[in-house]
Amino acid sequence: MSKGHSHDHADYQPDIEDFPFSERMVMTQAVAELIVEKGICTADELRQQIELMDSKEPALGARLVAKTWVDPNYKARVLDNCAKAAAEIGIDIGDIPIKAIENTADVHNIVVCTLCSCYPRLLIGLPPDWYKSRAYRSRAVKEPRKVLEEFGTHIPDNVEVRVHDSTADLRYLVLPARPDGTGDWDEQQLARLITRDSMVGVTPAKSPEDI
């Protein structure tokens, strides 16, 4: 939060590391100040929105996935209606539907947005740079196995790879497969195995020996 100075500049002074500033950084600051000055929104609202997005982390999605691993009925509800099932455990995924897709012994799922950067951000936070990169967006639909290898993920030939192309109106969340050797683990322990990348489908969940 603000340290109690400044009021009319939407409370943002660039950090030293921000120098030299770019034209778009200046534009961003100018637009923020103009919409506050015009009374369209308040500086507080902008700050709160930043804090809200900062609070959206892969840990939320991991909590949901961990619950699907221990509760088959919950998994069925997640697959049927992810928003409702997320709300059950206090997670608001927003207005844009998220479809959960399950990795099994026979099918591995991977998610991309070829046109832009659609991503289940309210469930796992903002997308990493590579998700928005030309290389990933172009190739994930054409040679997914090769792309997966670049993430260190080898999918055997007898496992089908399904690629899901997100849109502005439908996003995807991969439910990675539960690793072996976790039979007696509780949800909290299991959640530690579930990474952001595993919920995008570029890696499996971690194994017990990884943590």
């Binding site: 921000d18 961003t28 919409i35 902008l46 929105q49 930043i50 997005m53």
Partner: peptide, 9 residues
């Protein structure tokens, strides 16, 4: 921070 501000705007 400026990127987060764009997102927030």
């Amino acid at each position: 921070m400026w990127e987060k501000r764009v997102d927030a705007i």
